[in-house]
Every structure is written in C-alpha cells, then in structure tokens.
Simulated assay, not measured.
Amino acid sequence: MPVASPVYAIIIPAYNEAEELPVTLAAVRLAMAAQDLPGECIVVDNHSSDDTAAMAKAGGADRVVFEPVNQIARARNAGAAATAAEYLVFVDADTRIEAALLTKALHLLGDGRCVGGGAVVRFEGKTTAVGRLALGLWKRISLVTRTAAGSFLFCRREAFQAVGGFDLRLYAAEEVLLSRQLRKWGRGRGQRFTIITDPPVFTSARKLRWYSDLQIIGWILFMVLMPFAIRSPRLCGFWYKRPDQKKKQGR
C-alpha cells in the first residue's frame, strides 16, 4: 500500500545534541503514534561534531537534514524546506511534548481558524528561584502578547512561507519576530495565533545548571538594554555556547 504523504512535520534543530535527542525523539514518536494524521519527524543536524546525526537516525527520526551554518533560524528553515507537509511543528532538541499537546496543535490548525501558536513552557525537574521567576514572567508575556517560545511553535506552512520563515538576521528571539509576523498575517485572514495552556511543553533547565543566577540575570538585563545584540552571534553567546565547550557553539 502507498504511504500517505505527511500532513504535518515535526522539525527538531540539533547541534551536538546526541545526549538529549533520544529522550526527545522517544516523546515525539509517542505523540505522533497517537495522531490520526500522517506525519514525519525531521532532525536538522546543524553541523554537529558529536553523534547527533547517528542518534537521530537510531532514535526514530524519519529524516536527518544537514545545515552547515550554526544558526538556529537557519536550521529550522532548513527543516521546513525539506518537507511538503501542510502543518509545521518546531520542537527544540531538549524539549519533550505530550500526545495531547500535539493533538491540540494539529486540531487548531485543522479547524481553519488558527494560523499557528505555541504552548506554556515548564522546566523539567527542580529549578532555581531565578528560573521560576523568569519562567513566570515569560508565561505572562507569552499569553498577553500571544508569542510562542522557540521550544514549541506550530504554524500553517502557507503562512510560514508567506512571512519568509525565521529571520536569518537574528541569532536569538527569532521566534518572537515570527510569532508577530504570523499574528499579523493571520489577522488579515481571520485566523488567530493561540498559546495552548494545557498541557504545557516541558523543556530542559540545563542553562540553570550551566550558569549562575547572577549570569542569567545579567544576560537578561543586557538583552533588554541592548536589543540589537540579537543580530550578533558573538553577543548571543548565552544561547550558542556551553560552559564545557568554550570553543564550540551549542544550544
């Protein structure tokens, strides 16, 4: 029997994510198995130096795409370009989704009145006071402004293409701009941008382990005071460098 063309695609950008991918892909495959619609899972190897590509294949990715430039916007766009699916679901390599969350996202897209959206974010396991404060603040901003976190963002393919995808000039906050562009595009067509509150999406709190509270607060203040920094890969080092990989970029 012929295999049905995928209606949706889950796109996972990954740079040196061999450690996180098995858990993420296991959650993705379980979520996909609960859907009535055919879908595919695409991992974008963003020029990794570890076993990211091998782990992606072993973990159940339908396809592994290679993107040579270390930039998350490019990686996400490469995944979108590799599929003809009508619905695009972007999930970070350190983020776990539940079947119910994927079901809600696909239902919203399928009813014709939703251009895209995201979900309320929670950290896995224990977190710090600063982590809880930052996450609570982001939740309020996300719900009030209807802005999706990059860890989980879904949209209609036609809208994604119409607004030009993720902006390649940005090295951080590219999901904020895309959310704004999708809201505007959808508003003109009577389609809303929705943030799902239940169930949430669970993402790793690893940056809270990598950096001190003072470093995290300092970075947030720096971004607020110098918003142009999101156009500089060097100034976005908080997102692109790991403490144990000083000479490598990672997320």
Rank of each mutant, 00 (worst) to 15 (best):
A80R: 07
A82K: 09
K104A: 00
P13K: 07
I97Q: 06
A27L: 06
A27R: 04
L106V: 03
L106H: 02
A58Q: 13
A85F: 13
D50C: 02
Q71W: 00
V91N: 06
P68W: 07
G59W: 14
K57R: 15
D111A: 00
V89G: 01
D111K: 03
E19H: 06
F66N: 00
R74Y: 00
D111F: 06
Q71A: 10
Q35V: 10
T52K: 04
N46H: 07
L102S: 09
E86W: 10
A56F: 14
V3E: 15
V89S: 07
A105I: 05
L109G: 00
D92S: 03
A56M: 14
Y87H: 04
Y15T: 03
D50F: 04
N16Q: 08
A18G: 00
A33T: 05
G79F: 12
L25G: 11
I11H: 05
P13Y: 08
V64S: 12
V89N: 04
A14R: 00
R29L: 02
T24V: 05
D94K: 03
A14T: 01
D51T: 12
I97T: 13
L25R: 02
F66P: 00
V64M: 08
G110K: 14
E17H: 08
V91E: 01
A9T: 10
V89A: 09
A82M: 08
A75T: 08
C41Q: 13
G112A: 05
T52G: 02
A14E: 00
E67A: 11
A81I: 09
D36R: 03
A99H: 09
T95L: 02
C41P: 13
I11W: 06
A75N: 02
D62A: 15
A53Y: 11
D94E: 06
V89M: 05
A82H: 01
L88Y: 04
N77R: 09
I42H: 10
L25W: 14
A80P: 00
G59I: 14
T83N: 08
T83V: 11
L30A: 07
V23G: 02
A18L: 09
V89Y: 05
A80L: 11
A61H: 04
Q35E: 09
R76T: 04
G79H: 03
T83P: 07
D111T: 01
E20I: 01
P6G: 12
R74M: 02
T103Q: 14
L37N: 11
A53P: 15
D51C: 05
Y15S: 03
A93D: 00
L37A: 15
P13I: 01
D111V: 02
A85V: 12
L101W: 13
V64R: 08
Y87N: 03
R96L: 05
I72P: 00
